[in-house]
């Protein structure tokens, strides 16, 4: 496995056991380089989201710890959830400005940033619209804009496009990669789609379920910028095959009873 960029974030033997006794994660060790785009791939219930929630500081590990190259300040981590999670009572621009409002950023500066970001995600004409007036894909764009408005060093995405149709999803994948190339944040993208994970990431972490653990760490040396042509490229097909095999193996290990 290539160790190109310096470690930006490192999970060291992280385990999580819930009060009801469920072991959600066991011995997760994972180093993430600055500016990397990582895909966490696995079936439902293998702890992908739980890993993100640990990194976001929303959950504390039962064992192990999380090491940062520099401790993240407020706003240094952006997060996009499975649902758009917008405030229904606020306009799109007010939703996107929320992290800046919470950090008490000056209104003029905040508005300028929001306007620029809404233009970047293609929502410039919908700044004053309310979430219920937007399509699922547009709501997700707003959620991404909100996650990026603080110029985070790390963007966590928890199956953000799972509920969208294939065409919208591919468009959002391309737009997300463009934002990543432009802003050079580190990205952790949780997905249950091998194809999506391989298309986006530089490295795929394949997870095995019950308890959630890392099964394989697969570097994906596909060229950038990535576009539609890549989807029919033999190297893309090969990378998908490798990740799919690892995923099948991860599930198979569980099926033959070789758990923790």
């Amino acid at each position: 496995m290539g160790q190109g960029p310096p470690p930006f974030l490192e999970l060291q033997g992280v385990s999580k056991r819930y009060p009801n006794g469920t072991l959600a994660l066991t011995d997760i060790s994972l180093a993430v380089g600055e500016g990397e785009f990582l895909a966490l791939v696995g079936a439902s219930g293998c702890g992908k989201s739980t890993i993100l929630r640990h990194i976001a500081g929303l959950v504390a590990p039962s064992a192990g710890h999380i090491q940062w190259s520099r401790p993240p300040a407020a706003g240094a981590i952006g997060m996009v959830f499975q649902e758009p999670t917008l405030m229904p009572w606020a306009s799109i621009q007010d939703n996107v400005r929320l992290p800046l409002d919470l950090a008490k950023v000056r209104r003029a500066e905040a508005d300028a940033r929001v306007t620029a970001l809404l233009a970047q995600v293609g929502l410039a004409d919908f700044a004053r619209a309310y979430p219920r007036e937007l399509s699922g894909g547009m709501k997700m764009r707003a959620a991404i804009a909100r996650a990026l408005v603080t110029r985070p060093r790390l963007l966590l995405m928890d199956e953000p496009f799972a509920a969208l149709d294939e065409i919208t999803r591919q468009k959002l994948n391309d737009d997300l990669l463009a934002l990543w190339r432009d802003q050079r944040f580190t990205a952790l993208f949780v997905t249950h789609s091998v194809y999506e994970g391989v298309y986006l990431a530089g490295r795929a972490i394949v997870m095995a379920p019950r308890p959630g653990r890392i099964h394989a760490d697969i570097p994906l040396d596909l060229p950038h910028p990535r576009d539609e042509a890549l989807r029919t490229d033999a190297r893309y097909a090969d990378a998908c095959r490798r990740v799919s095999l690892a995923l099948a193996d991860a599930m198979g290990v569980h099926a033959t009873g070789g758990g923790a």
Binding site: G75, M79, F81, T150
Partner: peptide
């Protein structure tokens, strides 16, 4: 969760 993430 979002408000917690941003230290509200």
């Amino acid at each position: 969760d979002l408000f917690r993430l941003y230290g509200a």
